[in-house]
Simulated scan of single mutants.
Amino acid sequence: MNIPSTTLNNGVEMPLLGLGVNTPRQNNEVQSSIEWALEAGCRLIDTAAAYGNEREVADAIRSSGIPRSDIFITTKVWNEDQGYNRTIRAFNRSLERLGIDVVDLYLIHWPIKEHRHDTWRALEKIYSQGKARAIGVSNHYPAHLDELLTKAQVIPAVNQIELSPYSYLPDILAYHRQKNIQTEGYAPLVRGQKQNDPRLVELAEKHGKSTYQVLIRWSLQHGVVTIPKSVKRERIQENFDVLDFVLSEEDMALLDTFYDNTRIADDPRNIP
């Protein structure tokens, strides 16, 4: 499987479809899911210090036999580690747990008001030292980015936000395009909450696909890097089997109307 990629604002290539990993519920869950994803053609793994599984990510990549250079690894600095010096220390701990010298993408996990500029300054330092191929943010909305950009020397390459048709805010994607920031969407499957939406079911039946595959395809066709999570082998394989169909303009327009602000995570618009 040849998963398409996007070129970030600094020229780095990033796969458009990957695997999001979260806090493991049982032993080997994360490692197994990554191994299955890599077998399915995945080459983008999204983790975070807060998930507590960076070592499992490293173990899975090692056991896969796939060259490190072929895999795009993202991790993030957690809220309590923000601030210039603490971020530098947290980043070095992440590198140690991941067993790598360079991370492909390092993100600020959430916009913590009192630390935003110092944390970003730390990411710029990490980037200037070549320890991260790209840097960006997560859960930042235009007001947060506007503030960050008043002092930033480097434009974030990526903003990772919760994104599905049910949380779709077109103005945010337009803002990213204007600023040349790549949108990355997490929770595209809304943790299964919408799998029985009759409108979604009808679209899935029309294309002979699952509702989950339609949700992933919608995100990809918006040009969004998409990172569905799963720990089930069949579901992981299904999530990557989305490159053989296309949603029509009418399908996309319909899905774009599904917004009801259903979210898995907190709404960043409530963060000052």
Rank of each mutant, 00 (worst) to 15 (best):
S32G: 11
I34G: 02
A90N: 10
A40E: 04
Q129I: 00
Q82I: 05
E249T: 12
D146E: 07
H115K: 09
H222D: 08
Q31H: 08
W218L: 06
I100T: 00
V201N: 02
Q182A: 15
L19P: 00
G223H: 10
K179N: 00
Y166W: 04
H222Q: 13
H117F: 03
P268M: 10
R55A: 12
A49D: 15
W36E: 00
N79C: 13
E56D: 02
R177N: 09
L19M: 03
G185E: 03
I271P: 00
D46R: 02
A122F: 04
K232C: 02
S210R: 09
A253I: 15
A48V: 12
I126R: 08
E147P: 01
N270F: 13
D46W: 05
E39Y: 14
Q160C: 10
P198H: 12
E250F: 02
I227C: 11
S230G: 10
A50F: 03
R62E: 03
L173Y: 14
V190H: 03
R68Y: 04
S69G: 00
L8Y: 02
E250P: 00
K76G: 10
N22R: 06
R62L: 10
T183N: 15
R191I: 00
H115W: 09
Q221C: 15
I73H: 02
S164P: 10
I216R: 08
T119V: 07
A265W: 14
D197G: 01
P67V: 09
A253Y: 11
G130M: 11
L19Y: 01
C42T: 04
M1L: 15
S69K: 03
Y106H: 07
V57T: 09
E13M: 00
S33E: 05
S164Y: 11
Y212T: 15
N79T: 06
N270V: 04
A265P: 11
I172V: 06
P272M: 09
N22I: 00
N270W: 14
Y168I: 07
H109I: 02
S210W: 07
N92V: 01
N239A: 12
N196P: 03
P165E: 05
